[in-house]
Amino acid sequence: MGVDRRTALKGMAVAGAALLASGPGDQAREPHPAPSDAVGMLYDATLCIGCKTCVVACREANHMPPERTALGGGIYDSPISLDGQTRNIIKAYEGADGKSSYMKSQCMHCLDPACVGACMIGALQKREHGIVTWDGSRCIGCRYCQVACPYLIPKFTWDKAIPKIVKCEMCSQRIAEGKIPGCCEVCPRSAVIFGKYDDLLAEAKNRLKKNPDRYYPKIFGEKDGGGTQVLYLSKAGISFTDLGLPALGDTPVPELSQEIQHAAYKGFIAPAVLYVALGTVIWRNKRAEAQGKEEKP
């Protein structure tokens, strides 16, 4: 029994030490600034008139079939939210005090995207210009990206036996041809504009500075959730949470879980140590048992 206890205790100590070695510590992640070739979009809610031309243009730019929404006996191409065939949507906001605004949603092209952190096999990645695109030749359809994205952007074609993930890819196919995104091209009020990320950020700051009374005093996406390549300006008195954007704070969404993950698995050291420790304890216990048997008649 004495031998038993000692080996057991030792076993626990070794295993415990291995686990401790894997505890969170100095594992801070590197910051994720915008890539040098980053492009983006700037949506200014004070300019948008809710005409939804961009919704139609987005559909055309991506060769998506029109939606068949049955409403009040008629059929309309009138999606009510982003879905498996809608990558861009305009919604209206109305406050109790009579204030109202429009709001455009599509992928934010986060600087440190939760969806990219989630995807096991790199189907979603930040590719050229920092645009987050989906690679159908990799995706297994696990939908972890949908669980992870704080803006509920990736959509799944649930009605298909061979489904896809659908989201705004900032018209990367058009950008490759030297064109600009469909939604930005058609907007009659230039409420949504396309450009280099740095220029857009400067432009947004400029608008805030020139017309402080017109705007809600913040650029959404400058820092939120680690920053996004799509930036938003809102009307004075209407906050971004009013417009349906989450209050994420400045920490990138994937930061904490990845720090833990890295701490435990960096270089696979902790698991290897734990494995050797476990093996040693098992082997010692077995040997002790065998000896015990020999001693006993």
Binding site: I121, R138, C139, I140, G141, Q261, H262
Partner: peptide, 22 residues
Amino acid sequence: VGRYWYIYRIPLHFWQWNLNSA
């Protein structure tokens, strides 16, 4: 999973692994 025919790649395509993914 929706696109089950690619599952075999999870263990095999190690060069595509995203080691950040829990």
